[in-house]
Design a protein around this nucleic acid. Structure first.
Lengths: 163, 163
DNA sequence: GGAAACGGCGAACAAAATTCGGTAGCGGAG
DNA sequence: CTCCGCTACCGAATTTTGTTCGCCGTTTCC
């Protein structure tokens, strides 16, 4: 799906999305025009979904982060979709994961302080009647990998899907 | 800490970090040179931590995501730091949260398929002797907010910290 | 073996980044 | 009240980059 040149471009744009196309081209060893066209195609293909600034949360008055796992009932599409939508539009929420296994939802929140977290849990979660339970984990540190590489093919037994 | 102009610049760079400085300047209503200087200062102050391409995980051969919560013992700094570091360097791992509450660690992983996830859990987690338990949640959907705004000051009783 | 298609290249042109001297507005001191 | 100095913004000039497009070498498929 991605050749080596694509992968290299993607890697460099993950590390610094604001470096110039010329710089990327030089680092991956092709002409700027080639690099530009490749990048355009990667975007068009949906491999590159966008470019976003990474912001320091404490600077935005959000010194406390937590991951809140919630269980909702009934697990119908209507309830799930509505709950997801209402969580996403809360200013405290950074991210919503719809999941299965131990939890139905994982909600990553960033708030001013513990007081604010408590208010969020009681006023925004506990009050909702579809929420039958939730647990919170305060996040002390968060290390996010800047670059995600293509996974190498694993050692397979017996070959691929087209025999 | 951030005036209205800073906030506007930060907001626009969160939405699209690769738009030109001119475009940002036009949108926030200042001259390009002013916008450039502001952006430089925001970076220097650590408010803007970097700019990263958002990559489609399935395109990288990672069609399955999960959040794994792990409990480790003893909860000493040495064990925590070592476990964190070893998780971060695994290719399957996107993000590591060091937490307290329901869980000690939250590990966001993206793998090829369920088979690969199972291999990860058994070979990379269950084998470690400091891991005393873990639970996994398969992630079906992940909605990440592109723009994080500064939280408005709450209604406080009795005023600020400098009377 | 040849034709067509693909991908990369580099030059030319348009646009953006970056620098820097000038200046308006603001705040403080006299 | 006025003057001074400081800060932040602006806009023009220069350098750098983005973007387009015709050309050419390679590969692929008859």
């Amino acid at each position: 799906m991605l050749d080596e040149l694509d992968s290299a471009i993607v890697r460099h744009l993950q590390e610094d999305a604001r470096q110039t196309n010329r710089d990327v081209a030089r680092k991956v060893g092709v002409a700027p025009s080639t690099c530009l066209e490749r990048t355009r195609l990667l975007r068009e293909r949906g491999v590159l979904r966008g470019y976003h600034a990474d912001v320091d949360l404490p600077s935005l008055g959000r010194g406390v982060q937590a991951m809140v796992s919630a269980q909702v009932r009934p697990l119908s599409r209507a309830v799930i979709d509505a709950f997801q939508r209402s969580m996403v539009e809360l200013p405290e929420v950074l991210s919503v994961y719809v999941a299965a296994g131990s939890d139905d939802f994982l909600i990553h929140v960033a708030v001013r302080d513990n007081e604010h977290l408590h208010a969020f849990l009681t006023d925004r979660l506990a009050l909702r009647k579809e929420v039958v339970g939730f647990r919170s984990s305060i996040i002390f540190r968060h290390f996010r990998k800047t670059t995600v590489e293509e996974l190498p093919e694993p050692i397979t037994r017996g070959g691929g899907r087209h025999p």
